[in-house]
C-alpha cells in the first residue's frame, strides 16, 4: 500500500511543533497527524498507543463529526472532542487531507488545548504541502 509520507525536513518540523505543544501543556502526552482516510503520517507519543488504529478511528470520528454537523444544518465542524474520565482527545482538520489529534490527560485545560491545537494547525498548514 502506497501510504502518504512526509519529507525528512517536514518530519523534523512536525516533531518540533509537537515538542512545543507538550512543553506548553504538560497534560499533552500524544500528538498525531493522520490522513482523512485513516493512515498515520507522523506522531509524538509519550506513552505507547496503537497508532494505526487511532489514525483510522480519528478519520472516522472527524468524518462523523462533519456529517453530524451537516445533518444538523450546521457547517464547518472545527473540532471533535472526546472528553472522558481520563482526559481529552481533540481532533481537527489540518489542511484538506490531514487530521491533527491531540491527546491529553484529565488535568488539561480545555481552552488551552484548543489554543494549542489551533496554533499548531496554523503552523503546520503553512509548512506541509
Amino acid at each position: 500500500m502506497n501510504q502518504p509520507r512526509i519529507s525528512e525536513s517536514g518530519e523534523k518540523f512536525c516533531q518540533e511543533v509537537f515538542a512545543q505543544m507538550m512543553e506548553q501543556s504538560h497534560a499533552v502526552y500524544g500528538v498525531l497527524i493522520s490522513t482523512v482516510d485513516g493512515h498515520d503520517v507522523t506522531k509524538r507519543f509519550k506513552r505507547e498507543m496503537p497508532v494505526a488504529k487511532l489514525s483510522a478511528m480519528m478519520g472516522s470520528v472527524l468524518a462523523l463529526g462533519e456529517t453530524i454537523a451537516r445533518e444538523a444544518q450546521q457547517e464547518r465542524c472545527r473540532y471533535v472532542i472526546v472528553e472522558n474520565s481520563d482526559g481529552f482527545i481533540l481532533t481537527l482538520k489540518l489542511k484538506e487531507k490531514l487530521v491533527l489529534t491531540v491527546i491529553a490527560s484529565a488535568d488539561a485545560n480545555l481552552g488551552l488545548l484548543h489554543t494549542l491545537s489551533r496554533n499548531a494547525v496554523e503552523k503546520l498548514a503553512k509548512s506541509l504541502k
Binding site: 500500500m1 502506497n2 501510504q3 502518504p4 490522513t35 482523512v36 482516510d37 485513516g38 493512515h39 483510522a56 478519520g59 472516522s60 470520528v61 468524518a63 462523523l64 462533519e66 456529517t67 445533518e71 484538506e96 487531507k97
Partner: peptide, 22 residues
C-alpha cells in the same frame, strides 16, 4: 448520509473519495 473523505493511497487510482465511518 455519507462520511466520504479524500483517498490518499493506492485506492485514489480507483476513486477520489472513500467511506471512513459509515
Amino acid at each position: 448520509v455519507r462520511t466520504d473523505q479524500a483517498t490518499t493511497d493506492d485506492l485514489a487510482d480507483l476513486k477520489e473519495e472513500t467511506t471512513v465511518a459509515m
